[in-house]
C-alpha cells in the first residue's frame, strides 16, 4: 500500500514523502505503545532481590518481601528521607560433609535494595516484623500527609 502510494503518485514530491513517512512513524509508535503497555495492575519488577510489594492505606505504607530462611539478625534496614534500604545476606548452612546433593535450587548470597516511597514518611515510626519468612515493614505517613475528613456544616 505504501509502495503503491509512493510510486503511483509521482506528483507527491519529496516533501510529501517525508510527511508520509513521519505519519507512518507516528502510527507505529502508537501501535507499539498500545501493544506493549502493561495492564494497570501489573508492574515491571526492578530485577533486584528481594522482590517487594508496596501498599498503602490512610496511615501507613506497607512494604512486604519474601525472605525465606533469613533470620531478622541477617537483615539490616535503614530509613533516610523517603527511602528505605534493605540489605542482608541469606545464609544456607552446610549440611555435613557426607551428604550427596540431588537437587540444589535454593540460593544463598548477599542482597541490597533501596526503595523510594511515593510520599513523605515518618522515619521515627517504622515497624518491621518477620512472619513465616515474609518481611513486613510498616512505615507511618507524617501527620501532615494524612487525609483529613472535612465536615460540612449546615447553615
Amino acid at each position: 500500500m505504501l509502495t503503491g502510494r509512493i510510486f503511483d503518485l509521482p506528483a507527491m514530491g519529496w516533501r510529501n514523502l517525508f510527511a508520509e513517512m513521519e505519519r507512518i512513524r507516528r502510527e507505529m509508535d502508537l501501535l507499539t505503545s498500545t501493544l506493549f503497555r502493561e495492564p494497570a495492575s501489573r508492574f515491571v519488577p526492578a530485577g533486584v532481590f528481594p522482590m517487594v510489594n508496596i501498599t498503602e492505606d490512610m496511615d501507613n505504607y506497607y512494604v512486604r518481601a519474601e525472605l525465606p530462611g533469613i533470620t531478622p539478625e541477617d537483615i539490616d534496614m535503614q530509613v533516610s528521607g523517603r527511602g528505605l534500604s534493605i540489605t542482608g545476606e541469606r545464609k544456607i548452612p552446610a549440611e555435613g560433609e557426607n551428604v550427596k546433593y540431588h537437587r540444589r535450587e535454593r540460593e544463598s548470597g548477599k542482597f541490597a535494595r533501596i526503595i523510594e516511597l511515593p510520599g513523605q514518611i515518618d522515619g521515627d515510626k517504622v515497624d518491621a516484623k518477620m512472619v513465616n519468612g515474609v518481611l513486613t515493614v510498616t512505615i507511618a505517613k507524617p501527620e501532615a500527609e494524612k487525609p483529613k475528613q472535612i465536615t460540612i456544616k449546615a447553615a
Binding site: 495492575s41 517487594v52 508496596i54 492505606d57 505504607y61 506497607y62 512486604r64
Partner: peptide, 14 residues
Amino acid sequence: PCEGQNESIVLAEF
C-alpha cells in the same frame, strides 16, 4: 493474604 482490607497497591512485584 497478609494485606489489610483498606490497603491499595503502590507497587506489586510478586
